[in-house]
Simulated scan of single mutants.
Amino acid sequence: MTGGTEWLDLVNGHDEVVGRVTREEAWIRRLPVRVINAFLVNSCGELWIPRRTAHKAMFPNCLDMSVGGHVASGEDYLACFKRETREELNLNVDDVPWREIAYFSPFDTPLSAFMRVYEIRTDEAPDFNRDDFSGACWLSPRQLLHNIAAGDPAKGDLAELIRRCYLS
């Protein structure tokens, strides 16, 4: 981020960097950029699902992935995963078991961006950033999809990610 502007790498259909774009412009014009998402999964197979705070500009009060964020310009997916997990959950991924579980392209899926998805195994709820999330609960993938279908507001890609990563 420079001067309050968040810069992202603009990528082509092969996820190769072809330029830079602001986060705002990428969102407005639906340009291809990179993001990471991660899910905390406990030994019962439940996902730790937080609710975004009311003051978030995008998707306020919505259910969210355990971790999510845009890959900054010049950053790689793994560095972003580590940074976002530290910022949002106060968790160092070097101290917990984790793995990459999926890679998606917005050209092959209805998802919004090039996306790497990670899974962190833990039975402990994290000490999350209260500026990002207002609360959280453990839910099975099916219960989460049921809640969304019943009208609980959720971030745009959440239901599709659950279907692709945990129910396919």
Rank of each mutant, 00 (worst) to 15 (best):
D15E: 12
F114T: 02
R99F: 03
A102N: 07
A150W: 01
I148L: 07
L145E: 10
S43M: 00
A149C: 04
A113H: 15
R142H: 08
F81K: 02
E25A: 15
H14C: 03
E124P: 00
E75A: 04
W48Q: 00
L40M: 14
W48E: 00
H55T: 12
N129M: 03
V33R: 09
V11Q: 00
F81N: 01
M58I: 12
R164I: 08
L158W: 11
T122W: 10
R52V: 01
S66H: 03
T22W: 02
M115V: 09
I28W: 04
R83L: 05
Y77I: 04
E88C: 06
S168V: 13
F81T: 06
R29C: 05
L40H: 05
N12H: 06
P110F: 07
S43C: 01
D127F: 08
V18E: 08
R99G: 03
I28H: 10
L145P: 01
R86A: 13
C165D: 08
R163L: 12
A57D: 12
N129Y: 02
F128M: 12
R116N: 13
G135R: 09
W7V: 06
M115D: 04
N61Y: 05
N42G: 02
E87N: 14
R29H: 11
A150Y: 01
E6K: 14
N129H: 12
G135M: 03
C165W: 04
H70M: 11
T5G: 00
E160Y: 11
T22Y: 03
E84A: 09
V117K: 00
R86E: 13
R163W: 14
Y166E: 03
E25C: 01
G3T: 12
R130Q: 11
E24R: 14
T22A: 10
V71Q: 13
G4F: 05
K155M: 04
M65G: 02
N147C: 12
L63G: 00
G45E: 03
D64A: 15
G135I: 03
P110M: 08
P106H: 11
G13K: 14
C137N: 05
P60Q: 09
H14M: 07
S43N: 06
V11M: 02
